[in-house]
Amino acid sequence: MTDAHPEQTAPVGADVPLISNQNVMMNISLIKEYHENWTKAQTQAFVSAGLERLGLSHIANRRNPALTAEERFCAMLLRAAMIRNALIVIDRPFQIFPHLQDATFLLGALDGISDLFMRCFILDYCWMKDKYGALCR
């Protein structure tokens, strides 16, 4: 994935929602179609593979309101990963899934698609560092 292109910021956060009148597939495909002019078939295959790696193939045709917090986060993460040479910035992830006690799910999701982005930054309040465990030490 490394090439001559510089890293591009790819935000993930509660303030960067999915498009509500499009399903997950269309939301994620949009980035490749818009920036890299991929065909629908190409993007669908690529996105389907990414969802499968996250174990979320079943949410491809669902829209934002029909998703759980974890599914929503994964969809947002995958969308951000569609940016070429993505520098993923996750803004206060516990605003998206406030019911989770730690970042295990978050780290698992990042591990699942680690080859799709260059780097990842997680921004959160300092009093939340306990939730991130070993990541903050």
Partner: peptide, 25 residues
């Protein structure tokens, strides 16, 4: 109504953060 809802939900901001031109798209 569609555009108003997108604006209200900050979906348009999201598109701009992904460098998607609102006029084009």
């Amino acid at each position: 109504a569609e555009i108003a809802v997108m604006k209200s939900n900050r979906e348009l901001t999201a598109l701009e953060m992904f460098r998607i031109d609102l006029v084009d798209y």
